[in-house]
Design a protein around this nucleic acid. Structure first.
Lengths: 192, 192
DNA sequence: TCGCTACGTTAACGCTCATTCACGTTAGCG
DNA sequence: CGCTAACGTGAATGAGCGTTAACGTAGCGA
């Protein structure tokens, strides 16, 4: 057997099942035994893969933040026109939100349950991601200053991240269109 | 002293402080002793006012849902034109979200921690509130069917409820204008 | 074959925390 | 004056749970 397993290994199963459970019941509402049971092992076996329950959460949230930031940087590098960039960002983010609603849920619900240093890391990554949006909004002339751009960016996230509450019952491609169109319209709104 | 206290009584202090704490740390992240300490009494004194910690949360969430539904019904009764109704709903909801960000946070984060019957009650109230929005959207011709209207309504909630993540640092009246304009634009978007 | 590493297991340990108990203290009211 | 209801308190109870300990086992490299 390989030193680095080629198949999706226990570690990833745990991360995936834990995300599902955290999304449904919240970090404190899920026990170590519960996570173990979900992947077919029981209880303290998790400590062969993660240093602690908080460490598991930390890895999950850092992973999400890094993924979002990487995707954002990729788009930022590929588009010089800020409006094109915004469209690409919207497509990227709605796609992620529709594909991984549990991760979205956990990310903005259980940030408070991270140990201090991990929370700082996640906050930093999130901030960098937000700044990509803020920069695009300002350069596109769609926001009156950085503060307004930040409010608008967070509002757009809230809109796109509404997926977990509604789109579970709706076909994903339909929801994607609706959400992208609404987000685009919201960001192009001219504040009275 | 009166049988029915005229001043904001211990009971309401508890609800208010508990909301603040739940919003910051999550239901399971706050202890009974913590809530007691926040209002200047300690620990089990809460049981003179609420049957249990879950009962406290239940009263809080039911109260929010009832308030929103009542406000929605009021607006629905006052406006016959669906577009006017939507504007009134947007104003009502953004105002609430900006005035009570902790309640908004708790409402959509800790629903899962309610006992079953209370959760059913809250879900029912929420559903009724959503249906007011759905009806207005359909009658206004802004949504292609009820399913799309429901997705749009939830997206609008997500947008307006983004307040707790962003508008803490921004002047409330500014944020209110931005959010209302964005929500209006989002709901009037024509899905491609 | 030997031993090391990876991965599991079950049985404690210890702490937190919701809830209950037994017991005051005040204030209105007959 | 006493009775009672409202409101507190600090100590005990008991469950849940994260974490550690002690112990197995299979496979790979030397």
């Amino acid at each position: 057997m390989p030193r680095v397993p080629v198949t999706m290994s226990r570690r990833d199963q745990i991360l995936s099942e834990a995300a599902r459970l955290f999304a449904r019941h919240g970090f404190h509402g899920v026990s170590i035994d519960g996570i173990g049971a979900a992947v077919g092992v029981s209880g303290p076996a998790l400590y062969r893969h993660f240093p602690s329950k908080e460490g598991l959460l930390a890895e999950m949230l850092v992973g999400i933040s890094e993924h979002l930031l990487a995707g954002g940087q990729e788009r930022a590098a590929a588009h010089t026109d800020p409006v094109d960039l915004l469209d690409a960002l919207i497509a990227f983010h709605t796609d992620f939100a529709l594909r991984q609603p549990e991760l979205i849920t956990v990310q903005d619900r259980d940030l408070a349950n991270l140990p201090d240093d991990a929370r700082r890391s996640v906050r930093g990554l999130q901030r960098a991601y937000v700044e990509i949006w803020v920069g695009a909004l300002v350069r596109a002339g769609l926001a009156d200053g950085e503060d307004a751009a930040r409010v608008a960016a967070h509002a757009a996230f809230g809109l796109m991240n509404s997926t977990p509450r509604s789109a579970t019952h709706t076909r994903a491609d339909v929801a994607a269109g609706v959400l992208a169109a609404m987000t685009r319209a919201a960001l192009h709104a001219h504040p009275a």
